[in-house]
Design a protein around this nucleic acid. Structure first.
Lengths: 186, 186
DNA sequence: CTTGACAAACCGTCCAGACGGTATGTTTAT
DNA sequence: ATAAACATACCGTCTGGACGGTTTGTCAAG
């Protein structure tokens, strides 16, 4: 009964809708288009409703960031679980996730938004924190120059997808992934 | 006589000052801090004066972008001029410039600003154009997967510098550059 | 060498709109 | 009943930019 789908109000659903709309807006029209008015209206909620879920704009962006990082983390963990080799495991997971981001449907939320977030000094610092945590966590298995190089290349590919600047064809993309995976084992 | 330095007014100097101030502001306080008021005031010019040089804000950002790309291009050309080997020459120049951006004094203007610009859809498109032009230009010598990989890695390093997220020590950095340069010749 | 006409460079002010946020009401679920 | 989940109305501030005026440079005619 508790989780029977009550029809009238679904706060969690509204919350998600708001985050998704904010992501879409930043993707399509840049960070400047992410205003409380625009987001709430596009989500079919009043501005008051939006401010009920997120007390201020920074809280909205923070939540967006949390959402993104959480998805990224879980994708990484999942990828690592299916990898029997210890050496470079984190790097391979990183590679797989970054290369896959292009095709995913969920990826839309990422793209432009990510850069927009990184333009905000506050969130830039939070991202820095995340990187430091993860790299320290897997320093034993993924700190070799080759692994570092592979991850940097993955970032480059991710950035390229973000900008749609390169239009790498699928076969070349596969070759790159293969080369980088090989690097993680050397 | 025509180009004798007249003391009273130096429009080109003012124009440069405005661009530099805009770059500095975006670097230190994020893109949101780049307002006509803030830029003009920090540059010691009235808002009217700013709007005389740049008819609107977009024109200011566009000029900023042009300035950045021009510097990048000339740095690339200079690097290429000192490289006798044809194969992968562009890639090596790209690597050199990207790796050097961290240390340069002028690089300050880059950093945050670049990301801020890329967050603007209009400028994102212009950047895409630039990439397309340059990669087409050097398709004959720099289109191998290894070169592509190296350039992606350079982008990753550049991004890392931008975020100050990695803090790569100098020796590791040198190793990476060496490995990537080698890739451009394979 | 003036002088006057004209243009470029620059200033100071004002305004309409947008934006973030508050205060308060109304509906819905438990 | 009570609290969460919304809606409506409104306010203060900031921002882009328009506008009219003022100073500074240029140049040619007298």
């Amino acid at each position: 009964m508790t989780n029977a789908p009550s029809r009238k109000k679904q706060p969690q659903r509204v919350r998600r809708q708001l985050l998704e709309v904010a992501a879409r807006l930043s993707l399509e029209q840049g960070i400047a288009a992410v205003t409380l008015d625009a987001v709430s209206q596009a989500a079919g909620v009043s501005k008051g409703g939006l401010l009920h879920h997120f007390p201020n704009k920074l809280a909205l962006l923070d939540a967006l960031f949390d959402d993104l990082v959480a998805r990224f983390d879980s994708a990484l963990d999942e990828a690592m679980a299916g990898d029997g080799v210890e050496k470079g495991r984190f790097t391979r997971a990183y590679l797989g996730v970054c290369f896959a981001l292009d095709a995913e449907a969920e990826a839309q939320g990422w793209q432009m938004l990510t850069i927009a977030l990184l333009a905000e000094p506050h969130l830039k610092a939070r991202w820095r924190e995340w990187v430091a945590r993860r790299t320290a966590e897997f320093a034993a298995t993924d700190s070799s120059p080759n692994c570092l190089l592979a991850r940097f290349a993955a970032d480059g590919v991710w950035l390229s997808d973000l900008m749609r600047s390169h239009d790498i064809d699928a076969s070349t993309r596969a070759i790159l992934l293969q080369k980088l995976n090989a690097l993680s084992l050397e």
